[in-house]
């Protein structure tokens, strides 16, 4: 039995497998279907300072080996989260991490400050990469200055582990990663979804309500792997890799590319128990190749 324990900038995890924000609800939705306490970390749905209704329906379109979504950060706001959801999830025995989004750096900081007060939330993930909102989100994540402005504002008020989720919809993801590292991020996670579009030829209409959406699923994995590799070679902070992971081998590829941990997103919809299966599969791989721990393979691809 290899040592699966993983440490991301002070965040202690029993294994390197996390769930990606927006794909696993608040964890409790999946509690009937998988032992959620065996997951390394659960990143809950994107949370904003004010409640958001999100975009109109339709919000999804299936694509070959993947899907597009334009949910648009529907959530009931950070106060509702603190008052009504946190009490339901605080005693789940794994890392419950809140994904934080906003329209302005001040929004992000205020939201992060409220979550900072919650004892059982050991980390946040800043979403500067949502492609489905008009203001904020990806607008910050596509320039070094914008990304740094959000991270700096949050760093001033947030003293636990600060993960920043990066957008792939940029010319140089490494430049953005370096900018957020310099602004005080403890770790980066990538990739968020790739901007895409679906068209209904018979109706001659775009399928999604806002025209575009974020693409995820196995189809995006090669793009994600390349970006994780690039960023892991550029920054000093730990990298969390995600994008199209649907089996243990996919996850191991991200670790080899330089990710210290991984997130699984869309595939939770297909197999709700995939996170636990991937953790087991990583263990089997390490044993088979004679490695003692996850850290032994991180970034070792030739």
């Amino acid at each position: 039995m290899a040592d699966l324990r993983t440490n991301i900038a002070g965040l202690q995890m029993q294994n390197p497998v996390m769930t990606a924000s927006g794909t696993f609800g608040y964890g409790i939705e999946y509690a009937d279907l998988v032992d959620i306490e065996k997951i390394g970390g659960i990143i809950v749905k994107g949370t904003t300072l004010q409640p958001r209704q999100g975009n109109a329906y339709p919000r999804m379109a299936e694509t070959p080996h993947g899907m597009l979504n334009c949910v648009g950060l529907q959530n009931k706001g950070v106060d509702y989260f603190c008052k009504n959801i946190y009490p339901q999830i605080k005693d789940i025995d794994t890392n419950m991490i809140v994904n934080v989004s906003g329209n302005t750096p001040e929004d992000y900081a205020e939201c992060a400050a409220r979550v900072n007060e919650l004892e059982k939330i050991p980390a946040i993930e800043l979403n500067i990469s949502c492609p489905n909102v008009k203001h904020g989100g990806m607008a910050f994540g596509t320039t070094c200055e914008g990304a740094a402005s959000v991270v700096s504002a949050v760093r001033k008020v947030y003293d636990k582990t600060l993960i920043v989720k990066l957008s792939p919809n940029v010319t140089s993801v490494s430049d953005i990663a370096l900018a957020v590292q310099d602004a005080g991020a403890d770790a980066v996670s990538l990739i968020n979804t790739l901007m895409g579009m679906a068209i209904d030829a018979e109706r001659r209409k775009r399928v999604l309500s806002i025209g575009t959406g974020g693409m995820s699923g196995p189809a995006v994995k090669p793009v994600a792997l390349r970006m994780v590799y690039e960023v892991a070679h550029a920054v000093k902070v730990p990298v969390i890799g995600l994008g199209g992971i649907s089996c243990a081998t996919d996850a191991i590829e991200f670790l080899l590319a330089g990710a210290s941990a991984v997130q699984i997103g869309t595939h939770n919809f297909v197999d709700p128990a995939i996170t636990v299966k991937v953790a087991q599969g990583i263990n089997e791989y390490l044993d088979r190749h004679g490695f003692a721990s996850v850290a032994d393979i991180v970034g070792t691809v030739e």
């Binding site: 927006g22 794909t23 609800g25 999100g54 899907m67 949910v71 919809f269």
Partner: peptide
Amino acid sequence: ENLMACGIGACLCCVEDTKEKGHVCVCK
């Protein structure tokens, strides 16, 4: 039968607009 992905109220794709609760998941 709104288009849905997860089926258990996690992805928020299949929403229908309601009078009292705004967007709610058809699956849940």
